[in-house]
Simulated scan of single mutants.
Amino acid sequence: MKIFRKELLVFIITIFLSVNAACQTKKSSVTESESKIEKKKKKKRKGKVRLPDIDLSHWKVTLPVTNEKGKPYEIEPPEILDFAKNEKAKPYMYIDSTKGAIVFHAMPTESKTANTKYTRSELREQMEPGNNNVNWTFADGAYMKGKLAMDQTTKDSEGKYHRTIIMQIHGRLTNEQRDLIGAKDNNAPPILKIYWDKGKVRIKTKELKDLNASDEEILHEDAWGNDEGFNFEQEVGFKKFTLEVKVSEGKMVIILNKSEYKVYENIHMRRWGIFENYFKAGNYFQSRDEGAFSKVRYYELEVSH
């Protein structure tokens, strides 16, 4: 009888331990399953909000809307870091969190900058935040890389897409150069304009009209003319693409999608070394047609010197 009781007790303990172990295994399995579900939910939630990889601390933006003085509205650092909260900026520069990009929206308005008839929603590099007077030369070297796409653009009366400038290198006179030639401002020509042009990437640069012109003479804007332009072979259309611009003394290289290169290394580039420069990126819309507009998405933008 005692042996039977002992065996019964062992049997009951064994059953208890087995049931307890099974419960623990089930609990562990449920916990692991719930953990996986929660991770999937978090991943899904995270996937809904994507932010562009762009540091705006060294950029200011010009928008196609006027300020209280009737001039183009600009936002400089540090205010530009909170541009998404700026009510005046919202229609023209905003975050598309589904695509992880900043959208630059431009259309014909009365908000035109000096020396142009077109409007823009465009960033201007500021090496020293808030200061336009600190810039770089080709001898200093410079690099800009952007990942971008045309989001939307209208067509002209012939059914052709309107074009827009998506990147620039703009020249600038120093105060001394400005005073030397009696210019009204520090504006100098853009040595580089990169267009989205009917689905392709087109480059325009400047050339000296007179190669024998003096250093003082070439400071004048009318000393420079436009080259014939260059089109990359591949068509980017409305797809995402990458552009790189590399500058060094007497040389400028533009790279599309790491597969096509255009190199400028000539007397014009060497003589351009007299100017200071700054990068621009965004949407400088090239039409005054009624109802026309374009939207350019920038996913990434980086600059180094």
Score class of each variant (00 low, 15 high):
Ala213Cys: 11
Gly282Phe: 01
Phe230His: 15
Ala139Leu: 07
Glu76Tyr: 15
Ile37Ser: 14
Ser29Lys: 09
Lys112Glu: 08
Thr205Trp: 02
Pro190Ile: 08
Asn283Gln: 12
Ala84Lys: 07
Glu122Pro: 09
Lys295Met: 12
Lys69Gly: 04
Val245Glu: 03
Asn266Tyr: 00
Val49Trp: 04
Lys43Pro: 05
Thr164Phe: 03
Glu87Tyr: 06
Glu244Pro: 04
Thr25Ile: 08
Asp185Asn: 15
Thr31Met: 12
Gln126Thr: 07
Tyr73Glu: 07
Thr113Leu: 12
Ala89Lys: 07
Thr31Gly: 06
Glu300Trp: 00
Ile203Asp: 06
Phe11Trp: 06
Met107Cys: 05
Cys23Tyr: 05
Ile12Gln: 09
Glu87Gly: 08
Lys60Gln: 14
Met1Val: 06
Val247His: 03
Lys198Gln: 14
Glu221Phe: 03
His268Leu: 06
Thr62Ala: 15
Val49Tyr: 09
Arg271Phe: 01
Pro189His: 06
Asp156Met: 02
Ala142Val: 09
Lys26Asn: 11
Ile75Thr: 08
Asp222Ile: 06
Gly141Ala: 00
Leu256Gly: 04
Gln126Arg: 10
Val30Gly: 02
Leu173Asn: 09
Thr109His: 05
Glu34Phe: 00
His58Trp: 02
His105Phe: 07
Lys46Asp: 15
Val19Arg: 03
Ile12His: 05
Gly237Phe: 10
Lys200Pro: 00
Lys43Met: 13
Glu76Ile: 13
Arg163Ser: 12
Glu128Thr: 12
Asp53Asn: 15
Lys262Val: 00
Ser35Arg: 13
Thr137Arg: 12
Gln177Tyr: 03
Ser97Glu: 04
Ile12Phe: 03
Val236His: 05
Met252Lys: 03
Val103Ala: 07
Ile75Arg: 12
His162Ser: 07
Glu76Asn: 11
Leu211His: 11
Ala89Ile: 04
Ala89Val: 08
Trp224His: 07
Gly199Glu: 10
Ile254Tyr: 00
Lys2Ile: 04
Arg271Leu: 01
Ile218Lys: 04
Asn175Glu: 10
Lys85Gln: 11
Arg50Ile: 13
Asn277Arg: 02
Val10Ser: 12
Val245Ile: 13
Ile95Thr: 10
Leu123Gln: 02
Arg45Val: 05
Ser121Asp: 02
Ile255Met: 08
Met93Pro: 13
Lys26Ala: 14
Glu216Val: 14
Lys147Trp: 01
Pro190Trp: 02
Asp227Trp: 00
Leu8Lys: 15
Gly141Phe: 01
Arg50Thr: 11
Lys280Ala: 10
